[in-house]
Design a protein around this nucleic acid. Structure first.
Length: 256
DNA sequence: ATGCCCGGAACGTCCGGA
């Protein structure tokens, strides 16, 4: 099974790019973030015509996550548990075959310090709690998406310049490590321990893409039962160079 | 020292992004 994740920065602006990529790569599952639309405006029919069912958790203008799957999805749940007052659409999970899959869009958190950074850290604490609950199922779990965290200085083009950014601050990195310490495996580092410049995001501004000034912030975390089945993991840079590209590019794994 | 580029909402320009 091939599972990919891609922050598309608006599914409706990016639909031609997504359909082209699905047609060329045929993943079994594609997890989407920043769909930037309400559920009723999600292009489910176009994606169904391409062979994919959709599970959608959207909101107007901002955020929004979805799961595309060639196989049926069951037990779809939306919203990260732990705060009933949180209205931001950043979490959806579903069962596909024997695997529990989540598409997540972790808050950016800038400026830090501030209210947005506090929200990010609280969201990460809820993610840690829920991820722990999912481990107790002892089933394959894949938690993937835009984590908005550069786990180490190797994951940012200018560590010194970014050290106070919410993506790199120690409070964010500590919480990311806490997820790993629960027993989750970060797929890309597991397969490419020494890789440098393995970016998944390049800003639209200042020529970041042609200068290859990027960040590695999109990740797939695997429970032990999923990590046992990990085959390959790769970052597909091609979509970032296309016309009308998202600022993120897809990252994928294979599971046996 | 600051903004650069995008998409959404909406039609003037601001918010959010990372």
């Amino acid at each position: 099974m091939r599972i990919a994740t891609w922050n598309v920065n608006s599914i409706n602006a990016r639909l031609p790019n997504v359909l082209e990529w699905l047609g060329c790569n045929r993943p079994d599952v594609l997890l989407l973030q920043e769909i930037k639309c309400q559920d009723e405006n999600f292009p489910s029919m176009d994606l169904k015509a391409a062979g994919y069912d959709s599970a959608v958790h959207g909101q107007k203008s901002y955020n929004g996550v979805a799961i595309l799957s060639r196989q049926p999805m069951t037990d779809i749940r939306t919203g990260l548990p732990g705060d009933d007052a949180d209205t931001q659409a950043r979490w959806i999970e579903a069962s596909i075959d024997d695997i529990r899959v989540a598409s997540l869009y972790l808050p950016n958190g800038n400026p830090a310090p501030g209210d947005k950074f506090d929200y990010k850290l609280a969201w990460m604490d809820r993610l840690i709690a829920h991820s722990k609950d999912l481990l107790y199922t002892e089933k394959p779990v894949v938690l993937a998406g835009d984590y908005n965290v550069c786990p180490t200085d190797d994951d940012v083009y200018d560590p010194a310049g970014w050290q106070n950014d919410a993506l790199c601050r120690p409070e964010s990195r500590t919480r990311f490590r806490r997820l790993l310490n629960l027993g989750y495996t970060e797929a890309y580092r597991a397969r490419h321990p020494a890789a440098k410049h393995a970016w998944t995001f390049w800003d639209y501004q200042a020529g970041a893409w042609p200068r290859d000034l990027g960040l590695r912030i999109d990740h797939l975390l695997l429970s032990p039962e999923a990590a046992d089945r990990l085959g390959e993991c790769g970052i597909d840079r091609d979509p970032r160079g296309k016309d009308k590209a998202s600022d993120h590019t897809p990252i994928w794994i294979t599971l046996s």
